[in-house]
Design a protein around this nucleic acid. Structure first.
Lengths: 225, 225
DNA sequence: TTCTGTTTGTGAAATAACTAACAGCGTTAA
DNA sequence: TTAACGCTGTTAGTTATTTCACAAACAGAA
């Protein structure tokens, strides 16, 4: 008898879990030991029902009247997302955006780590940037193997993105976060997620000036009486 | 008799329209005058049905057997998204990420334009960065009024984000693209969209190593026979 | 012209995501 | 101990989004 139907979570669920964990670290830092679903919901700008539903994919259960233990909930999300071990990441393209990500990501509380950066420009490689060693592109394959890198971040100009993606795939990458406004063609088993800043901005512009949809704060959803 | 029910489009539809337009400019540059829904779909990594459905919110119709006229389709999307006129944007926080956005955005083919950047650091203001003039924070309100700025991009550290958002709102901003990992509290009529790079990366890490969901390329959906 | 092969536009069906609602439990207070 | 309250886990219901499927339209060939 199967113990449980696998039922892989949706992308949105994973995103929210990641966000919850981030928020929970903040809670923990403030010394709170417990939190209710509606409090977490308010911080994440979702409904409390959504939070409880998301919790169902984790093994962890809160207790009635006490809510969730922050520490255990973090541990639970971490076990779920990271599966116990961290992942090593290569960042390719040390331009403005690449540097931004390197600096924002150093000293992060996730088990993901950018362990190497790469660029074609010889003037900027062979040194540390924000604590991360920069290699010339030629070393990509070798370093990926040495460091057991399984994830890649692509922050190169659009024209170079596909070539870089090919090299990452050849190096054995399993997933790519792509900032170049290009759809990458990769083997079946490589997961790609695109982050297009221009699109994001145009969306904001549209809804800012056409109103309608309201995404932030279901707010006082459960205000009393 | 009402000509048409308004029926505001979903966020996802707007994002896709923005992406289509971006892709169509590329098509146009290659000299193609027409395109089919399935070709555009392949580039955007969605289904052809999705493309046609999205087209329904525009007034424009393609012609059977000829597809869509690229130029007219771009014009149609532009009319829909930009409503005829451009928008002026203020970027706050000239760190690594801010610079990245300034450089990626200069000379873009959208009608959105970053017309001013702001920072608290006196050493980096009062000069051009990637073609954009940088002001000290004190000038925010004045410049916003002068330049008719209605959109803001927040690329400051988390701790400063709420204060910046407050100032932007006071300056009359209608929408904010927020990169700080914080939920901003803003008045009802200000639209906020959050872009959390860490969350995006953790999502990639999860699906890269747990498989399941496949987002890229419905691919050869309509391969013959 | 007429036939053939394709493609669009669109409502209906299917799927996915979210919300509501409530039984059951733990905590607290008498 | 017992009762009352508030929160969680969970299922069912609702809404949003995507895909299907097919009529109508057009171009090209014969």
């Amino acid at each position: 008898m199967p113990d449980r139907i696998p039922q892989s979570p949706s992308e949105k669920t994973v995103e929210r879990l990641s966000l919850y964990r981030y928020l929970l670290y903040g809670i923990l830092a403030e010394g709170e030991r417990n939190i209710f679903s509606h409090a977490l919901a308010a911080m994440a700008a979702v409904s409390s029902a959504q939070v409880r539903q998301d919790m169902m994919v984790l093994g962890y259960s809160g207790s009635p009247n006490q809510g969730y233990e922050v520490g255990k909930l973090i541990a639970s999300i971490t076990e779920f997302l990271d599966d116990g071990h961290g992942r090593n990441i290569a960042l390719v393209g040390i331009g403005n955006l690449g540097r931004a990500i390197l600096s924002n990501f150093s000293g992060q509380r996730s088990r993901l780590q950018i362990v190497a950066a790469f660029d074609v420009n010889w003037q900027i490689v062979n040194r540390l940037i924000h604590g991360c060693w920069c290699f010339p592109m030629e070393k990509l394959h070798g370093v990926m193997k040495e460091q057991d890198i399984t994830l890649g971040i692509v922050t190169v100009p659009p024209a170079a993105a596909q070539v870089v993606a090919d090299q990452l795939c050849e190096g054995g990458v399993r997933g790519i976060l792509n900032f170049a406004p290009v759809r990458l063609r990769v083997p079946e088993d490589v997961y790609v997620s695109n982050l297009n800043i221009t699109v994001a901005l145009e969306k904001v512009a549209y809804f800012a000036h056409h109103g309608m949809v309201r995404v932030e704060s279901p707010s006082r959803e459960e205000a009393k009486v």
